[in-house]
Design a binder for these strands. Structure first.
Lengths: 320, 320
DNA sequence: TTGGCTCTGGCAACCGTTTGCAAGGAGGAC
DNA sequence: GTCCTCCTTGCAAACGGTTGCCAGAGCCAA
């Protein structure tokens, strides 16, 4: 039924090993023979069987990509870029979703461990210790997480937070609410750390919050009540949920409260008010993470991507 | 390094075939032995090698999922649901993105053909003939595409369009613009077909359009100029882009023009004006498509999912 | 002519599992 | 006690490639 290396070999009167070499070590076969083989293979529609190849070589040419939540608009561009990059290198990528559950995350990594050549851990929620342990079983690259000794692609969340807070300060806001994300989030910690170092601000911390609109919706009453006039949210979804909640309570954004998000996802760019947010280079991160994983040299390489504040309509002058 | 079936066999003094059977045909092995094997396997951390298994059985326990654009918020919930469902049946899923390019789509299907047990073709753009031909090489299930003889999960776009147009008509709109999607889109055809049968409406067709915000942005001038007071857009992204463009031209939505989208994606639910739209059960579709693919009986089964109009803020009374 | 070198391609073992076949043992019916 | 079954397990041949090793051919220099 399916055409194998044997059929190709028979078709042009050579041994299977010659066919094999034509594909995996072309320089070892005579150009004339090689062309005959190539022609026959093309003719028969031969495609090497990846499972068989994986069995002997130990390389599957598959990658695993694990994210907390595919439905969070932050991830799709990252996934898309990673997948495209991998495809260009003849790799396929398994995408999996942990539903923000560290246990699922752990199980997923274990499942992937021996079946892929490497995994991309995007915003993992597991502990450092656990990740280090799991990474012993499979080459891993972190995205938005920093663990000593492990390769990672980071986005400069600290800078983003500083820019955001400076922007708020510049508009006259002093009392500012900081909505953190889920437990275990590196991004959330970075934001908090950066914020804590900003002088002259009166910071209020709320969290942990679900990194979704419902998370934002849920804290809206607290935020409205705390007297803050500016808010820095864990991500755009939280920011949008918050605005939703505030608006429902007749608290105008940005009239009474200014809100800044993180990620620059599509929903924030549409509708009204358009979100002021910190742009995160998700696609670039996906691309570079794949590269990092595949080149494997530069073991502990860490790439730091730039972030930028995009001012839109959800922030305005403080009117105290 | 990695622990194989052999190690487990040695560890409890049985033959490899017994270990194999413990996992793939438990009823064929004595409960006592089975337990010893299970214990040893667990102890050593044994995980069957999928590549090896695939080689002998011909089943990879992998699925392919091909979508036009991962970054279109319509797809992630579908992908997420499909992936979760597959995982529950011990399948992994390769996600791939065609970037709306039929050639990439074809190549992707060919590449997957022999490496997966089946593919999900979500809103494919290829011709019927081509899809039928490719489907000979690999079990396929269509999502949002109807081809005779092939299993499919459809969403009732016709009903959605009718509801939407009736809603507009009920608000007094008579002259209505219909923004179609990309060429090759079944959904787009269904919409048009349903619309064409609605009596008493003055329909204007615009298209094909890119199924993105830019697509909507781009037709905004034409829509504003054509005198329509109601619009049915190919999807929410187009609708949101259109609103964006109209607003920029000082055409109020829904004040002067009412807009209805399709999909009920997140961005439409946030911001202002919130989109009136036809809700599409994307997650259910992903789940059912996987089931359809895996049960494989009921060869040409077609599942028809219901759609519903969700009235929000982008539609209002016609004021002529 | 001979020895040695380089190219090329065949041979066969191996990767980790599955599975048809057969053998051995236990147990039941007679 | 014998025969027949059923249950359990071992044996070995696949599955489709890859790769180390070896041999023959062709070439060159001495």
């Amino acid at each position: 039924m399916t055409v194998t290396i044997k059929d190709v070999a028979r078709a042009c009167g050579v041994h299977v090993s010659t066919v094999s070499r034509t594909f995996s070590a072309p320089h070892l076969v005579n150009p004339a023979t090689r062309n005959r083989v190539l022609a026959a293979a093309d003719d028969l529609g031969y495609r090497p069987n990846r499972a068989a190849r994986a069995l002997t070589t130990g390389r599957t040419f598959n990658l695993g990509l694990i994210v907390a939540d595919i439905a969070n608009p932050f991830f799709p561009p990252l996934i898309k870029a990673a997948q495209a990059q991998a495809r260009g290198r003849d790799y396929h990528v398994f995408v999996a979703d942990t539903d923000e559950d560290p246990r699922v995350e752990e199980e997923l990594i274990r499942t992937f461990a021996k079946q892929v050549d490497g995994v991309l851990l995007c915003s993992p929620r597991l502990s450092n210790r656990m990740i280090e342990r799991l990474a012993e079983d499979v080459p891993s690259v972190l995205v938005n997480r920093r663990i000593k000794g492990m390769p990672a692609v980071l986005m400069d969340v600290g800078k983003g937070a500083r820019l955001a807070l400076e922007h708020l300060a510049g508009l006259g806001h002093r009392r500012i609410a900081l909505l953190s994300g889920p437990p275990g989030s590196w991004t959330s910690n970075e934001m908090q750390a950066a914020a804590a170092e900003m002088p002259g601000l009166d910071l209020l911390f709320f969290g942990p919050n679900q990194p979704t609109e419902s998370g934002g919706l849920a804290v809206a009453p607290d935020v409205a009540a705390c007297g803050a006039t500016g808010v820095l949210a864990y991500n755009d979804l939280v920011a949008l949920g918050l605005i939703e909640g505030l608006t429902a309570m007749d608290v105008d954004v940005p009239g009474r409260i200014s809100v800044i998000g993180f990620d620059d996802i599509l929903p924030g760019r549409l509708g009204r008010p358009k979100l002021t947010t910190v742009a995160m280079p998700a696609a670039a991160a996906g691309r570079m993470a794949v590269d990092l994983l595949l080149q494997s040299e530069g073991e502990g390489a860490v790439i730091n991507l730039d972030t930028d504040l995009i001012v839109r309509e959800s922030t305005g002058r403080a009117n105290t």
